[in-house]
């Protein structure tokens, strides 16, 4: 199959994985949902109370079958990279794997009541964003584009889920090239 695989990692609401998959389809290539993967072992940092993003990407790479273009993992865990206090997600630039964390997309994280439609919208945008990076896109200066940089949820909420014209065109070209390879 010549498309993007979307997979839950550990305990994740399958509906939210579906939302992520539906949104990732905006980039063009076909989407396939595959059965959940376990959480990577040893990813938890006890001192920080968070999970390192790198082992998630490593396991996703390992799970990528021959012929598949990209793979997006979805986790409930609060992810970090060593130099930063947290990340909403992490992707390999032009690489096959990306992961999205739902932890900080939940209003509950900020002491607010749950808001399922808001959470679904945020999950969709971040899925689009991280998969965009795997197609080699960098952050977009258009605030309404899902490829714009978000360092807080207010920025996630400000942007839409449909890529701007230039990001869409760029991704189409990159995806086309990746498929031919």
């Amino acid at each position: 199959m010549n498309g993007v695989l979307v997979v839950g990692m550990g305990a994740v609401d399958p509906d939210l994985v579906d939302e992520a998959a539906a949104a990732a389809a905006l980039w063009g290539p076909p989407i396939e949902r595959i059965p959940p993967l376990p959480e990577p072992e040893g990813a938890r940092d006890a001192g920080r109370g968070q999970w390192a993003a790198a082992p998630f990407l490593k396991n996703l790479n390992a799970a990528l079958p021959a012929g598949a273009l990209r793979i997006l993992g979805v986790t409930e865990r609060d992810l970090f990279v060593p130099v930063l206090s947290f990340v909403f997600g992490q992707a390999q630039m032009e690489g096959p794997a990306a992961v999205v964390s739902l932890a900080r997309l939940r209003p509950e994280f900020y002491g607010l009541p749950p808001d399922p439609p808001l959470l679904r919208a945020r999950a969709r945008k971040e899925a689009v964003h991280e998969v965009g990076h795997t197609f080699g896109l960098v952050h977009c200066p258009h605030e309404s584009c899902p490829m714009s940089l978000s360092v807080g949820v207010w920025q996630v909420d400000r942007k839409g889920e449909a890529p701007c014209r230039s990001c869409a065109a760029l991704a189409r070209g990159r995806a086309e090239r990746a498929r031919r390879r």
């Binding site: 990279v81 630039m93 960098v138």
Partner: peptide, 26 residues
Amino acid sequence: TAWRILVVDDEPVMCESLAAWLREDG
């Protein structure tokens, strides 16, 4: 993209995580 950034750190994970994050920014 004309601007180049250098990250200097003896710990490879620090180096790479900051570099990756900055590359996403273009």
